[in-house]
Design a protein around this nucleic acid. Structure first.
Length: 746
DNA sequence: TTGATTCCTG
DNA sequence: CAGGAATCAA
């Protein structure tokens, strides 16, 4: 089980698209993989009864949500728990009715059929007769028959188990033998006819299992079919059946040795041995050890098989989508853009700006505050900036002052070495021209000399080389794609698609698809990222007792009861609602929101609601999230302004009095300081590939700021409004991947 | 009046 | 990042 636990926990497994899957915190480490595999998308799995309250409610929640949509927007927070209990009770009640046998799966029917068929001929009548006879003679004969049948059953069982073990590559015959020996001894100790049926059912079950297992064939190949494979299906349904039937029907409730085994391995491991069904007649206990091993073996095999299949599918998928890309993370770079080199070519202007800033004597600190000082500084020190306020300057013919010797680096060979900044490289072909600037046109990028001086670079080549300015290593290269496996979120995606859309992409998506539809491929497994993906990501951060309370379904109750959080924590409190949504926003939601910012700077509240299905929105939560994006924008614009001012200042100090704005030469590449800062802020874990579009927009914003500052428009109190207006029109649709609940990355 | 947004502050 | 104030639009 643990063999694949780190990378493939139960929480990675497919689940209904709705929120409310149990948090890992609720689950002992050994929660069986198969349990989830048993719940193919949407198929209600009715399990209950023997589960403790918490788990039962979780299961019930799964059940409910398997049927349909998230109960979003419904007022289920307070009453959810009760309603669930009621529905559960009602459910049991309903199922005590024999009429509901029709609901049972074919597996159950098959079990019954096989049970009948395998029963010794006439045995039933004879048995009844013996029972009526009721004497000692009858009992003796009965035992003899039982023994015979038992022997027979043992043989069959042994054969069947051999098959099973062969199938799973494990042989625990000795243990099985020992187990059966104990069973027989116990039987000899004197039990009534019920045991016979039990043995028979065991036999039957083994047969059934064997049969279906044979059909199952290659587990690895058929891992997906295992998601709905029937032995376990029937196992669960029979468990349910037992629960419905209750105490009085031992012949149904008991037996099914394999079932018992599985039950133990499943439920017991699940719940830490807390729960145990009423069906235990004693034999199961004897076989517990072997049964658990068997179940363990099954789980291991199932888990590894599923993991292999998943990896294979992922590989296949990533190959289909972009054979040239590393499998782990599909690059957003357009074809032909070769990673760092290309990026280095078409950008780098603002590389390493910040430290330079400090070197230059704390002229700026941060954006807004700099604003005033910056103005003063510029008005004062840059001495009658010729570029400012005179349109005539801007309309003057471009006279690019540059020293031809500066730029030897070939545009395709990356940034110039050391002392020269690669800022003014070729305009990237994929870059869309920023919206028309409010000042006279600049040279089109394509016509601009490739060897323009680095005058716009915040780091002055003349004053200090970048290497000297930065003893520390230069800005980190673009984040390398992380290796396989793609799990967690991407796997969720994959399963979500395969299970709910019943298809995997078979054709390479268009570039647009890359950008807008399949960004989940950008996610790569972070080594340390752990599945907060399925809902309730915050629980992991909370006190376990909170998790317990929350798990109970009466989360609000704990607010008063637990009192684990002092006053003032309400804002960030987490409450589970009946629909699996949570009130309050978690750090995971914040991460997700930040990633969304790459696509949408100005999402509407309605948009946010659609992209956070696991959040129960109320006025407070909505405004909080709106506020988040406001803060994101604020940070974004502050950086833009800051770097724009820096570039302006750089241009002034470098070229003296350039007569034209050259913001057209500004670039934001993945190797620039500006990019690094933005990435650090919105994508701190650096597991998400920043969309190219966001870089383009950043460039637009940077140029707009530069232009405004250059032309002196920043003296207008409302000078940023126009820029905001431009940027707000550049929102792109947030990928569908973000519509899933939970946190996309760890 | 409410919600969204920006600006400012801590 | 949150809180608060101010502004603006619906």
């Amino acid at each position: 089980m643990h063999a694949f636990a780190p990378s493939l926990s139960s929480t990675d497994l497919p689940a209904p698209p709705s929120a409310g899957r149990p948090s890992p915190a609720f689950r002992p480490p050994g929660f069986p993989l198969i349990h989830h595999l048993l719940q193919p998308g949407g198929a209600p799995r009715r399990i209950g009864g023997q589960l403790n309250t918490n788990l039962r409610q979780q299961e019930d929640r799964n059940l409910e949500e398997g049927r349909g949509e998230v109960e979003q927007g419904t007022d289920g927070g307070e009453e959810g728990g009760m309603e669930r209990e009621d529905s559960l009770m009602g459910f049991k009640k309903r199922h005590s009715d024999a009429a509901l046998a029709a609901e049972w799966s074919q597996d159950v029917l098959k079990v019954k059929r096989m049970k009948l068929e395998s029963r010794p001929k006439g045995g039933e009548a004879e048995e009844g007769g013996r029972r009526r006879e009721g004497g000692r003679e009858g009992r003796r004969r009965e035992r003899e028959e039982l023994k015979e049948q038992l022997d027979e059953a043992r043989e069959r069982l042994q054969a069947l188990q051999e098959k099973v073990w062969r199938a799973f590559g494990e042989k625990h015959m000795a243990e099985e033998e020992e187990k059966k020996g104990r069973c027989r001894n116990r039987e000899d100790g004197g039990e009534d006819a019920g045991l016979m049926e039990e043995e028979e059912e065991e036999d039957i079950t083994e047969g059934m299992y064997d049969e279906e297992d044979i059909e199952g064939g290659d587990m690895e190949k058929e891992a997906f079919s295992l998601l709905s494979v029937s032995p376990f299906d029937s196992f669960h349904k029979q468990r349910e059946e037992r629960q419905k039937d209750g105490e009085g029907r031992m012949e149904k409730g008991r037996g099914l040795h394999l079932e018992g085994v599985m039950e133990e391995a499943g439920l017991w491991l699940d719940c830490g041995g807390l729960v145990r069904g009423d069906w235990h007649g004693g034999v199961e206990e004897e076989g517990e050890e072997g049964g658990q091993k068997f179940a363990q073996a099954l789980k291991v095999e199932l888990g590894s098989a599923v993991a292999r299949v998943i990896d294979r599918v992922l590989r296949l998928y990533t190959e289909m989508t972009d054979p040239s890309s590393p499998p782990a993370a599909i690059s957003f770079l357009p074809p032909g853009n070769d990673g760092g080199r290309e990026r280095g070519v078409w950008m780098g202007l603002l590389t390493q700006g910040r430290r330079e800033e400090k070197m230059r004597g704390n002229e700026e600190k941060t954006g807004r505050q700099d604003g005033e000082r910056e103005k003063q500084l510029q008005n004062r020190s840059s001495g009658a900036p010729p570029h400012r306020s005179e349109p005539s300057d801007l309309s003057m013919p471009l006279a690019v002052q540059r020293s031809p010797d500066i730029r030897k680096a070939h545009p395709l060979l990356g940034p110039p070495l050391s002392t020269h900044h690669p800022n003014l490289s070729l305009h990237h072909p994929s870059l869309s021209r920023p919206p028309p600037l409010s000042h006279p046109p600049l040279l089109p990028p394509s016509s601009q000399p490739k060897d323009l001086s680095t005058s716009f670079h915040p780091t002055s080549c003349s004053s200090s080389s970048s290497s000297s300015s930065f003893p520390a290593p230069p800005p980190p290269p673009p984040p390398p794609p992380l290796p396989l496996p793609l799990l967690h979120y991407s796997m969720q995606q994959l399963f979500s698609r395969s299970l709910h859309h019943h298809q995997l992409p078979h054709l390479p998506p268009s570039r647009k698809d890359y950008l807008n539809s399949d960004p989940f491929l950008e996610f790569s497994a972070h080594p340390s990222s752990h599945p907060s993906f399925p809902p309730l990501p915050l629980l992991g951060h909370l006190d376990p007792s909170l998790a317990r309370h929350a798990h109970g379904g009466r989360e609000r109750g704990m607010r008063g009861d637990g009192g684990m959080r002092g006053g003032g924590m309400d804002g960030g409190e987490l409450y589970l609602t009946a629909g699996g949504t949570q009130e309050g926003l978690s750090p995971c939601h914040l991460k997700k929101a930040k990633l969304m910012f790459f696509y949408a700077r100005y999402p509407s509240s309605n948009t946010l609601k659609t992209y956070f299905p696991d959040v129960k929105f109320n006025r407070c939560v909505t405004s909080q999230m709106i506020k988040w994006f406001s803060n994101f924008r604020e940070f974004f614009y502050i950086q833009m302004e800051r770097f724009a001012r820096q570039a302006v200042r750089e241009a002034l100090t470098r070229d003296g009095a350039p007569r034209v704005s050259r913001e057209g030469q500004l670039r934001v590449g993945r190797d620039t300081e500006l990019y690094r800062i933005l990435n650090m802020h919105y994508n701190k874990s650096n597991v998400y590939q920043v969309p190219e579009r966001f870089i383009e927009i950043s460039e637009v914003a940077l140029r707009e700021f530069y232009s405004a500052i250059w032309t002196g428009r920043d003296s207008d109190p409302c000078w940023k409004k126009g820029i905001y207006k431009i940027i707000c029109k550049m929102d792109s649709p947030v990928p569908d991947a973000f519509r899933l609940p939970g946190c996309p990355i760890g």
